[in-house]
Simulated assay, not measured.
Amino acid sequence: MACRSRGRGVIDSTTHIRVARPSRDLGAAERFYVDGLGLDVLWRTTERVPGGHDLLMVGPPGGSWHFELTRDPEDPLEPTPTVDDLFVVYLGKPVDEALVDRLVAAGGNRVPAHNPYWDEYGATVADPDGYRLVLCSRTWG
């Protein structure tokens, strides 16, 4: 099925996208996404601001998207991922088991996919908060 634009949206391939989600431990999340997956720290809070959230932003340098991981130390939210909350990376080549091993060593947990499609075409690793990263051998587009 082809996707079609009806010309009424304001989002295109250059629009910057931020995906925000809570984290129990920003240090653990940083190890997973930076040391494990290889993303860069784009920004983080460096001091406590009363009433403010602790923030960690990770993504590819110069990319048009990033994750904002948050923790409110005064009123923390418990992450509530489901088996279908996925961050899918289309690699366009076989999944390197060394990458999966690095993600596990960085605090991830390899898990079976809820949808068997992802097991057929890749590997699923839960991050320290339980959100699932899928490394897919296929391409998109």
Score class of each variant (00 low, 15 high):
Pro60Gly: 12
Leu77Cys: 04
Ser64Arg: 15
Arg132Lys: 11
Arg102Phe: 04
Gly59Ile: 04
Ala20Arg: 08
Gly122Pro: 04
His114Trp: 13
Asp72Phe: 04
Gly7Val: 11
Pro50Trp: 02
Thr82Tyr: 12
Ala126Ser: 07
Leu69Trp: 01
Asn115Glu: 14
Gly7Ile: 13
Arg8Met: 15
Ile11His: 08
Gly59Cys: 10
Pro94Ala: 09
Ala106Gly: 04
Gly27Arg: 00
Pro112Met: 03
Tyr121Ser: 11
Pro22Trp: 00
Asp54Trp: 08
Met1Glu: 14
Val41Phe: 04
Pro60Asn: 13
Gly59Arg: 01
Gly108Lys: 05
Thr139Asn: 05
Cys136Asp: 13
Ile17Glu: 10
Arg110Lys: 14
Arg18Thr: 15
Arg6Tyr: 15
Leu26His: 02
Glu30Gly: 07
Asp84Val: 04
His16Cys: 09
Ala106Ser: 08
Ser137Cys: 08
Arg31Val: 01
His53Asn: 14
Asp85Cys: 00
Pro128Met: 10
Pro116Glu: 12
Thr14Ile: 00
Ala106Ile: 03
Tyr90Met: 01
Ala126Leu: 07
Pro73Asn: 07
Arg48His: 02
Gly27Cys: 02
Tyr131Glu: 08
Leu39Asp: 01
Thr14Gly: 10
Arg110His: 11
Gly36His: 04
Val104Phe: 02
Ser64Asp: 10
Thr15Asn: 00
Ile17Gln: 12
Pro73Val: 13
Gly9Met: 10
Glu120Leu: 12
Val104Asp: 00
